[in-house]
Design a binder for these strands. Structure first.
Lengths: 229, 229
DNA sequence: CTTTTTGCACTGACTGGTCAGTTCAAGAGG
DNA sequence: CCTCTTGAACTGACCAGTCAGTGCAAAAAG
């Protein structure tokens, strides 16, 4: 019989109240910053424990291994990001905005997320394209989860005629994702004083093709030389 | 004593066809793939030596330490990339193309470079935004070197009236860089069969604002450029 | 009410293994 | 003969994971 709470099953789910859950959260927080700074391999479990203010044994009481701690961290993080992006898109849809507006809102949400969790973002970028790593499948899933939110909106926009049918949906989603990712990391690293709206406006401008002053007036040659055929 | 290596950095510059230089190149090649796969910390010097087909002692005869080997690798790699981008831009300029054409050519050159040196690219992405690392200043320099090539062309384009004066040059350069980087890594990782021109066309389309089907009146004219099929 | 039991959550010294870097004598090569 | 390479043995630091033990609050027993 479990002496604590009535049902053991529920007790383990019950996230916010238990002492254990608080410890896990502290460990996540400690791990994410340390790993973002130093990388996974050069971050020691002792460091994580110290930063979290617990003993090393506690880490192993709460997570099966350093690897498992990291995987759960990745999963937890990407759920937050995906939810945040999805939410931004949904809000625009409810308000009756277009899909393109939704994409724009997602860029804003992405920028906001990165500004809130810069360490988590650094960490993803650093690990996402690495091969031969034990947690590769987790990383795959994580990437898919994030990019597909963007791809879905693009797909809807194409279906609704808002975007050209000729665009390459997965590639465009990736490119968009990368654009926001790298621009945001540079923003955070090198121009942290700029406002999010400022950065957002710059990216929007780039995307909407309003970068060029006199568009394609005479510049039809933009890719004339590059087309193979 | 091992000081001959430290002092011999310059000496090794002039001798480009010595036996030693060949060994160094083999070590670079071995190191870049291993580190891209596993990360710096979890790649051992023994592994690098084995992959390069030399003895461990040789590694330390040629490089002062594992760290120094890595730093020289980073420098060497970014010089190749910067030269490649610059070259693409210069060729367009010589042919009398516009700056926007030069940007487009740089995207192509970037894609090509990444397809040629995927491991090097992975490695940069993984390390570029990391803080608190011994070789941080090297990384800073490396990033600056690469992005500034792009930024310079954008600046010229703005000065020449080809691009709007309202664009944010450094941020746009970063965003562009990130777009190509992430799209290329996804291409290599998940759709390696696609041709470079196909990927290039998709990115050009995204950039030129011709993604949207009926948004900008100006974009309609050039729509013929659906090169891939 | 008090005493005892139970077991969760946590502790931190310890272990066994790994790895960067060293050393050096014996070649290889040009 | 001087530069470069080999290969193996060695050192010492560092680190993931273990385990015997502690503290505590709630439940059971008295």
């Amino acid at each position: 019989m479990s002496r604590h709470t009535a049902g053991g099953t529920i007790a383990s789910m019950d996230s916010s109240n238990t002492r254990r859950e608080a410890t896990r959260r502290k460990l996540f927080e400690a791990a994410v910053t340390l790993i973002a700074e130093q990388g996974f391999s050069s971050t020691t479990v002792d460091e994580i424990a110290e930063r979290a203010g617990v003993a090393k044994g506690t880490v192993y009481y709460n997570f099966a291994s350093k690897n498992v701690l990291f995987e759960e961290l990745l999963r937890h993080g990407v759920e937050m990001l995906a939810a945040s992006l999805q939410n931004a898109a949904d809000e625009v849809a409810e308000r009756g905005g277009s899909r393109v507006d939704a994409l724009d809102a997602m860029i804003h949400a992405g920028l906001y997320f990165i500004s809130q969790y810069p360490a988590l973002t650094q960490l993803y970028v650093a690990e996402l394209w690495r091969t031969n790593r034990t947690w590769n499948s987790t990383l795959m899933m994580v990437r898919e989860r994030a990019v597909s939110v963007v791809a879905d909106v693009i797909r809807d926009a194409v279906a609704g005629g808002e975007l050209s049918e000729e665009i390459d949906i997965p590639l465009t989603a990736s490119a968009l994702f990368g654009m926001v990712l790298v621009a945001a990391l540079d923003w955070q690293s090198f121009q942290p004083d700029r406002s999010i709206d400022d950065v957002h406006a710059a990216l929007s401008r780039l995307l909407q093709g309003r970068v060029s002053g006199h568009q394609h007036a005479g510049g039809a040659g933009a890719e004339a030389g590059t087309c193979p055929s």
